[in-house]
Design a binder for these strands. Structure first.
Length: 340
DNA sequence: AGAATTTGACCATG
DNA sequence: CATGGTCAAATTCT
């Protein structure tokens, strides 16, 4: 498993080098080249760190959702009693706090200029939209379509970037506990749902995403950064400083037949958005999975008071802040210029 | 008809 | 009180 990931990383590094090679002409901005170099370095760093520690420094995805009870997760059940409504509200927010949260920057580039809904392989249902202070574009709120059916608590927010309207910042919250009916893998179904299947499932997801992107939108993952650190699990870490993840492009290797000729649509820090549009539709779909997801528990009491997942799962619950220890301390965050 | 989206109102939080 | 997040009725879409 880890071997495959490392191979992924290294292969990406090779591809990036190839890309850089193609960029070696005067027309390409030095910035772009440096960006590629950063990515290449990140790829190698990641691989090395994985080899060094024998384990995966950061989980590619957090564990599947903790077994919150469905009832609790569905506060709105046509509540006729206003009092209970308030109570439920509180529950909702409590839950929210305990959910892992991470953000990804996604660039949507389509030849026709149609910025469509970002399809990340899950089915989302929009439940709100809000104008955000200081932002040119409203923020859209989505939750998993299967929330009511399966109690899946995953939500996401999509915020279009002010500077580059082709960039969306997607903030995910909570993980999918639902089963995507679109692709029920019979092989894995027979094994039953086990916590240890997370990697596999996530990989399926990303593959599916790739397929979706291939036929529909071209989406690039630009990067991601973790937002929140609870204060207690990592006292020695400067909490105020944000940790920025380098760009990791972990597309599944098996279906990369289209990999040969992707265009240099590789972006470009927010400074050079204009020439990006001049490019023809992306020929390459890169999808980067975030390898440094962390949970964001802000209330220790809640963690302690919700030990169900810990006791139920032999593997342990990655919702638990301990998995921040997995955060690779030696990893270099050298792509900070990437973000505004 | 049922599902999804829109949109103003409501609520918690700082 | 301003702001961000969510609800839910109304509306649109399939």
């Amino acid at each position: 498993m880890e071997k495959a990931i490392i191979i992924n990383e290294l292969t990406q590094g090779r591809e990036l080098v190839n890309q850089l090679k193609r960029h070696l002409d005067p027309s390409t901005s030095r910035q772009t080249c440096e960006l590629l170099l950063d990515k290449i370095l990140s790829s190698y760093e990641k691989s090395l760190s994985m080899l060094n520690w024998g384990g995966f420094a950061g989980e590619p995805q957090p564990a599947r959702g903790s077994p919150h009870s469905f009832d609790a997760s569905n506060p709105r059940s046509e509540g006729s009693d206003p009092d209970s409504k308030d109570q439920c509200h509180r529950d909702v927010f409590k839950k929210r706090k305990t959910l892992p949260r991470w953000t990804e920057q996604v660039r949507v580039c389509s030849g026709t200029g149609v910025e469509g809904p970002l399809d990340d392989g899950y089915s989302w249902r929009k439940y709100g939209q809000k104008d955000i202070l200081g932002a040119n574009f409203p923020r859209a709120y989505y939750r998993c379509t299967h929330r009511n059916v399966q109690g899946c608590l995953a939500t996401k927010q999509v915020q279009r970037s002010d500077q580059d309207s082709s960039i969306f910042q997607v903030t995910y919250r909570g993980r999918h506990t639902c089963i995507q009916s679109s692709h029920l893998n019979p092989a894995s179904e027979t094994q039953g749902p086990k916590p240890s299947q997370d990697h596999q499932e996530k990989q399926e997801q990303s593959q599916e995403m790739l397929l979706n992107f291939g036929t529909d939108l071209k989406v690039e993952e630009l990067g991601s950064r973790e937002e929140i650190f609870p204060s207690f699990s990592f006292p020695s870490t400067p909490i105020d400083s944000e940790n920025e993840e380098s760009l990791i492009f972990a597309e599944p290797m098996k279906e990369n037949s289209f990999m040969g000729n992707y265009s240099p649509a590789f972006l470009s820090p927010a400074t050079s958005e204009s020439n990006y549009f001049s490019l023809s539709p992306c020929q390459m779909n890169f999808f980067g999975m975030d390898h440094n997801l962390q949970t964001s528990e802000s209330d220790i009491n809640e963690i302690i008071s919700a030990p169900t997942s810990v006791t139920n799962s032999p593997i342990g619950d990655l919702d638990f802040p301990l998995d921040q220890v997995d955060f690779d301390p030696n990893f270099q965050f050298d792509t900070s210029e990437f973000f505004t």
